[in-house]
Computed example of a mutant assay.
Amino acid sequence: MLIGDLGWSLRERSVQELFKVHLMRFSQDATLLNILIGAMPALIALTLGPLIGAWSDRTRSRYGRRIPFIFGTAVVTATGMLGMAFSSTLAALAVCWTIFEMATIVGNPLFIALINDTVPRHILGRFFGLFRIVSLATGAGFFALFFRNELVSVFQPLLVAITGVYLCCMLLVCWRVREPVCETPAQRGGWLPVQPGDAQWGRLFAAVSVGALAVLPININALNACAQFGADAGDFGSAIALTYAISILLAWPVGWLADRYHPLRVGAVVLSAYAVCMLVAWRLVDERTGFLLALLVHGVLAGCYLTGTVSLLPALLPRERFSQLAALSASLTALLVVVSTVGLGALLDATGRDYRLLYLAGALTAGCGVLLWRGLLKRYL
C-alpha cells in the first residue's frame, strides 16, 4: 500500500503544478485557471463520483470490489498524463487535463476506500500519518530537485517519467494487495446516489466540504501569484519543499493526536489557527519574504489539517457504504468548489489580479468552517 502511495503521491504533488507551468505558456487568465483546476474537476466529481462509488460498493469479484476500478482509473490517468506531456495547443492540453481529472477524481476515493477496507480502524490515524510522510517526502523531493526556473525545458521528459513511476506503483497495488472477503450481499437500493437516512450525514459533509474549500484559493493560485510579490518558480519550489519537510516531522504526531483525541478535535483546532494566520497575512503580506513565509504557514497548517482529518470519514461512516457516502461528501464539496473557484477567478481578474485577496478568501472560508466543526464536536463528542 505504501509503495502505491509513493506513485499516487508523486502524481498528486507534481502533475497539477506541472500543468500550471505548461498552461502559463498559453494563458495567464485567472478565471481559466480556476475553472480548469477547480470548477471543472468539481463538476466531474459531482456527476461521476457517487455513481462509481455505489458501483464499487456493490461489486463482488475475484479481485475484490476496489482493485478492478483502481486498475482502470490508473490506466486512464496515465493516458491523460502522457497526453498532457505531448500537448502543443491549449485545446489539446485542456482535453488531456479533463481525461486525467476524470480518472483521478474517480480513483482517489477508491484508493482511500481500499485503505479503509484493509487497515484496522484503531490505527487508521497513524497509518494515514505514515501515508502522509511518504506523500510529503515525495513532494519535497520533487520540488527541491525539479521545480526551478528552467522547469519548462524539462517538462515533457519529467512528466513522462512521473507517469511511468505512477503506473508501475499502482499496478503493483493491484497485483499484490488482497482485499478482505466481503460476503454481505449488496442491497437493491445501493445504486441510488442518496438513500433514505443519508440526511443524517449532511452536517458532517458540509463541515468537511468547507474545510477543504478553505485551502483551495492559495493551492490553486499561489504559483501565479509569485510575480506580484517578486518571487519566482525557484522560490516557490524551495518554499513548498521546506513546507513538506516540516510537515513530514508533524505527520506522525498529528496522526497520533487524531487517534488519541479524535479527528474532529484536531480539525477544529487547526482550522481555527489557519483562519487567524490567513487573516494576518491579508493585512501584512506585500513583498517576497512575507509571501514566502505566508506560503510556508499555509502549507504546514493545510498539511496538519489533512493529516488530522483524513481518518474522519472512515471513522464515522459505515464500511459497507463507505465509497458511496464518501463520494456523496465529495459531491457536496464539488458543488461548493464550482461556485467558489469561478467566483474567485472572476474577482481576481476584475481587481487586476490582486492576489492578496487569496488570504482573505481563505480566512473567511476557514472561519465559516470553524463554526461548522464546533457544531460537529457537540453532536458527535
Rank of each mutant, 00 (worst) to 15 (best):
G369C: 10
L18I: 00
V270A: 07
V266F: 07
R356Y: 06
T163K: 00
F205G: 04
G255L: 10
V181D: 12
T309F: 02
R188W: 13
V215Q: 09
V254P: 06
R132I: 13
R356D: 10
L364D: 07
G7L: 00
L364T: 12
C182L: 13
L332A: 13
R132E: 13
T89L: 06
L364M: 11
L328H: 05
N34F: 09
C277A: 15
V338T: 11
Y274D: 01
V337Y: 06
G202H: 11
A258M: 06
A199K: 15
G352S: 08
A144S: 05
L23A: 04
F86T: 14
M81A: 02
Q16W: 12
A144M: 15
T118K: 11
A233R: 14
S323P: 07
L284C: 12
A54G: 15
C168M: 13
L328M: 09
A268K: 07
K378N: 14
T73Q: 02
P68W: 06
E287H: 12
A327K: 02
W191Q: 15
R319H: 14
I248C: 13
L313M: 12
G299K: 03
L36A: 06
L171I: 01
F236L: 02
R203T: 08
F205Q: 05
P193D: 05
F100N: 05
F291N: 01
T309Q: 01
D286P: 07
I99H: 06
T341Q: 15
L249G: 12
F155H: 13
V280A: 12
E287L: 14
F322T: 00
E287W: 13
H122S: 14
A186K: 04
T104E: 08
V76A: 02
L317P: 00
T307S: 09
L242A: 10
C169Y: 01
G369V: 04
S27A: 03
G299Y: 02
T333R: 12
R265C: 08
S27V: 02
F142C: 00
A273R: 05
G190K: 03
G303F: 05
